[in-house]
Amino acid sequence: MANMEQILLEVKGLQKFFPIRRGILQRVVGQVRAVDDVTFHINQGETLSLVGESGCGKTTTSRCILRAIDPTAGEIYFRTDACEMLNIAALPESRVQPLRRCMQMIFQDPFSSLNPRMTLLDIVGEPLLVHGMTDHQERQDRVAELLQLVGMRPEYMQRFPHAFSGGQRQRIGIARALALNPRLVVADEPVSALDVSVQAQILNLLLKLQDQLGLTYLFVAHDLSVVKHISERVAVMYVGRIVEMATTEEIFGAPRHPYTEALLSSVPKPDPRLRSQRIVLEGEVADPANPPSGCYFHPRCRYATDICSEETPVQEEVETGHYVACHRAHELSLRGIARQ
């Protein structure tokens, strides 16, 4: 599994804190620990999903990897074209810029992610232009090819985004992300703003493109059904930390962290015969500016013991490729989703 040759991206101890400022002098009075010591890797050609509820730091993590925001601490190793692992966490912007063609992003909101004042040709062609494809005809051909790849008519090139529906705009966004032949594509909730009947089209497209182009996806989502459908491995985040990470089958079939168990059981299943005995978590998601002691999940955890409120659990590999941060990972037997 963890064959070192295959690793495309490796994140070690990533932290991102946002200062809380108060008063006229804007003094820093605290920190929001949005991402707190996150470690994971992605292999070439696979899909890793980051799941969790709002505020768990999954989006912040993905933006740090893209260097859309600067991480507070930690290392992000990305395999460059020269096949060496380069730590991009602390590189200056000028050295990140050439790497941008290797990692691209698909946005959540198909309406705000396309500049309404530019035609499809300009939108999809812009990454090509800034990376040196100055010939207009060449660019136009490439844009036509890309539009075709995502299932859009090349004749639409002269149109503006307002002529398209959410699903079509998302396809345009995907075409733009693919323009530079990236190796890593970060998809931040790419289907959550779409209608149910359109979601499936986009998911199919993403899977098809991965097969065709050998893409690697970092998929950020909160919808577990979508995550299960698209990913090979899943990392579950809670208040800035990864609590569990394993293959999709193991996360869904045999979770080892109580939070994963509760999360799985909370998802309403589209079958009235499966009205389950849900585990309804009490209380609220912890505040990342003021997290509880020990394991951040312990106030809501029904298996919590004394040690959980005192010591922070460390991430350990309980089985090959199955990482859990829980004091009781070895003794608990948790409920997953029954396989049919």
């Binding site: 941008r100 063609r101 909101d109 990454p127 800034v130 733009r176 530079l180």
Partner: peptide
């Protein structure tokens, strides 16, 4: 804050552009 500005940045556009 707009996504399309971030998209342009991630595409490698310079500040002036």
């Amino acid at each position: 804050q707009e996504d399309f500005v971030m998209a342009a940045r991630l595409a490698g556009c310079g500040q002036m552009r």
